[in-house]
Structure formats: C-alpha cells, structure tokens
Computed example of a mutant assay.
Amino acid sequence: MSKRKIIFCDFDGTITVNDNIVAIMKHFQPEGWDKLVQQVISKELSVREGVGRMFALLPTSRKKEIVDYAIGNVTIRDGFRELLEYSRMEGIEFFVTSGGIDFFIYPVLSAFPIPEDHIYCNASDFEGTHIKILWPHACDSECDNDCGMCKTAIIRSYPKEMHERILIGDSITDFAGAKLVDTVFARSHLIELCEDLGLNYYKFDNFFDVISRLEEMKVR
C-alpha cells in the first residue's frame, strides 16, 4: 500500500514573508527583547522560555495595538493558496505547525481553507497585566528541546510506516522536525542545517517552487 503524503508547514517566515514574533518585538520595543532573541538563536534559552519571556514584556493594556499590528503586518508568501489547492487535488493532508501565537495565526489563516484542527500553534492569555503564552502542544517524552510547540511530537503522531512526511520551514523551530521527515523544503537558516546533516532537502523561494518539485517527485 502506498504511503499517504502529509505536509507539515511552518508559519512565521515560511507561510509569511516575515517573522511575526520578531516583527512585533521590533515594533513595540519592550526593554530587553533583543537580548532574548539572541539567546534563543544561540540556544542559551529554549524557544519556549525565550518566547514566553519576550511576550511577558508586553502589557495586556496594549492588546488591541499588538493584535492589530500583528495581523496587519503579515504578508503571505506567493503561491500559498495554490499549494493548498494543489494539496487538496492530490490528496495530500496539510498541517500548519507553528511556534507562533494564536492571536495572529488564526485570524490570518481564516482567509484560507484550512480546518482549525489542522493548525497547531501556541496560545495566549491576556487576563493578567502582561501577556502570558500558553503551551497546549508541549514536548512529549521523546523530545527534550523544550520547544513550546513541539513539531516533532506532531510529526511522530503520523507514523513513517504509513505516511510520506514532508516539512516546509525556515528556522530554528524546524531543525528537529527536519531530521524526522522524508523530504524538507527549506529556506533561510534551515538550509544550513540540511546541508550540515546531509538531509534530503530542496530550496524554495515561494510555494510555486514547492508545487513544481512535488510534481517532479510524482514521476520518479
């Protein structure tokens, strides 16, 4: 029996042209945010701890400003709607697996035909004085990266014996997942990891590149 193709696609810097968490921090400039970003990149802090501490710098009194900016600042990468349609036509199951936050991911993706249960991201709590990030998809017993939103746990829930697993991503939150899947579509920092580890990957600039390569893979 042939394996069913399944795509796990990152949001920030992949579906979107820019990284929305960094864009929010750059715009609102809470004191100390830039050091936290560098500590996450250098792996001094886990993604969960770093992102949680960044958003804890923002007061909930500015909720409307922050949400409006986050949604309004998004630019969708070319070919995304077409990739979703291609996936539907080809019977490829499509999941969004994001280390981003619900208050901007759900509104942005509501314009596209993606079921909500196919969108994995972190949650937010605006009840206190400062934004609190919640982690409904934390690491399982097989992951100790303290991801926050654990992409590897989600990928493992679709066994390789039954699925041809494809990851599309760009950054540090995609590193661990890239090691598990059959094929990686990579840009930015993820390219370097794939090169270093000799993973099966293809560079992409937009989602039309992904569609073209998926078509080529069909005829092998």
Rank of each mutant, 00 (worst) to 15 (best):
L84N: 01
L84E: 00
Y86G: 02
S87T: 05
S87G: 08
R88V: 02
R88G: 02
R88E: 05
E90C: 08
G91Y: 09
G91C: 04
I92S: 05
F94C: 02
F95G: 02
F95L: 09
F95M: 06
V96F: 03
V96T: 04
T97D: 03
S98C: 04
G99V: 05
G99R: 15
G100L: 12
D102I: 05
F103S: 03
F104R: 05
F104A: 02
F104V: 01
I105G: 01
I105C: 03
P107S: 10
P107K: 13
V108P: 01
V108M: 12
L109W: 03
A111R: 13
F112P: 01
P113K: 15
I114F: 07
I114D: 00
P115S: 12
E116D: 07
D117I: 07
H118K: 10
H118E: 00
H118P: 01
I119Y: 00
Y120F: 12
Y120S: 12
Y120E: 04
Y120N: 07
C121Q: 06
C121N: 08
C121W: 04
N122H: 13
N122W: 13
A123H: 08
A123G: 09
S124F: 08
S124A: 11
D125I: 04
D125T: 05
D125R: 10
D125Y: 04
E127F: 09
E127M: 11
G128H: 10
G128V: 05
H130E: 10
I131Q: 09
I131M: 14
K132H: 11
K132S: 10
I133S: 04
I133A: 07
I133W: 09
I133F: 08
L134M: 13
W135I: 08
W135N: 14
W135M: 14
P136M: 12
P136D: 10
A138T: 14
A138C: 14
C139G: 02
C139K: 12
D140W: 11
S141R: 15
D144N: 12
N145F: 07
D146E: 08
D146M: 11
D146L: 09
C147V: 06
C147H: 09
G148E: 12
G148T: 15
M149K: 14
K151Y: 07
T152F: 03
A153K: 15
I154L: 15
I154G: 01
I155Y: 06
I155G: 01
I155S: 06
R156A: 03
R156N: 07
S157H: 11
P159W: 15
K160S: 05
K160N: 03
K160Q: 04
E161R: 15
E161K: 15
M162R: 14
M162A: 14
H163I: 06
H163F: 13
E164C: 11
R165P: 00
I166F: 06
L167Q: 04
L167H: 02
